[in-house]
């Protein structure tokens, strides 16, 4: 067990331009964070830069997609015995200075998983394009209905988790747009989910990996996955993990 240490999981795919600043900012925010960058088969210097700034780097042999990448981070956290994890994106849109807000409900034992929301009132600086906004509202409505709890930002990758949350996601984590479906997983496993307001910056470099046609496909796919997740039985044996 790593008492008092918090692991900061940073999934990154071709973020050579931003990753160095992200790692530095996390370490500057609080020295208690151990940063692990999960490099999703980048073809640029993402991994090398992260390592040079003092982060642990797990390099996937090929691109596995965002869900598998983030889950690798949760497995890392579980295997290394961390009690608490935070997760933020490698493109610099999440401000490590706000991690304290996310960790509040975890430290007070009010939640197992905390997500930072851009859309809780008072934090409305972020104005996504129309198509994106429709998707955001659609998923917020459906997920809120399914899990019987008001959520506003279902695609936020800015999160904090306790050991229960880490273990759940290490054993079972969805693939594309994983955060949306993960909220249903959290509900079905009777863990506590809390949203806190955060502000997010625009992307520093690179571009969002989602094009318009793909986004229509994802809306259908994720909606189907949401309903399937609701009717699925969860006698799924949790993966046994040795604790070195």
């Amino acid at each position: 067990m790593r008492a008092g240490r918090i692991v900061a999981i940073v999934p990154a795919f071709n973020e050579a331009g931003a990753i160095g600043g992200v790692v530095d900012a996390i370490r500057a925010a609080d020295p208690a964070y151990d940063v692990v960058v999960i490099d999703d088969g980048s073809s640029d210097e993402t991994g090398a830069i992260a390592r040079s700034r003092g982060a642990a780097v797990v390099t996937l042999p090929y691109n596995v997609g965002i869900g598998g990448t983030v889950q690798t981070g949760f497995k890392y956290a579980l295997e290394h015995g961390y009690e608490t994890a935070v997760r933020l994106d490698g493109d610099g849109q999440h401000d490590p200075g706000e991690l304290g807000k996310l960790l509040g409900p975890i430290h007070r034992d009010e939640a197992d998983i905390v997500t930072g929301s851009r859309f809780i009132d008072g934090s409305g600086e972020y104005r996504p394009p129309l198509a994106r906004r429709i998707g955001i509202v659609w998923f917020a409505r459906i997920v809120s209905l399914l899990i019987r709890q008001q959520v506003t930002d279902t695609t936020s990758g800015f999160q904090a988790l306790n050991r229960k949350g880490i273990a759940l996601f290490a054993g079972d984590y969805p693939n594309d747009y994983p955060e949306v479906e993960a909220m249903v997983l959290v509900f079905k496993h009777r863990l506590r989910l809390v949203e806190v307001p955060v502000t997010m910056r625009g992307r520093e470099t690179g571009q969002s990996s989602i094009t318009f046609v793909r986004s229509i496909y994802y809306v259908f796919k994720v909606t189907l996955a949401l309903f399937m997740a609701m009717v699925r039985r969860y006698a799924v044996p949790q993966e046994e993990v040795r604790h070195p």
């Binding site: 693939n175 796919k221 399937m228 009717v231």
Partner: peptide, 18 residues
């Protein structure tokens, strides 16, 4: 749908069939 529910088919590969 039943195959998806039982986790024997991923949504990604089921959409075309649906």
């Amino acid at each position: 749908l039943e195959l998806i529910r039982g986790r024997r088919l991923k949504e990604r590969y089921a959409l075309l069939w649906l």
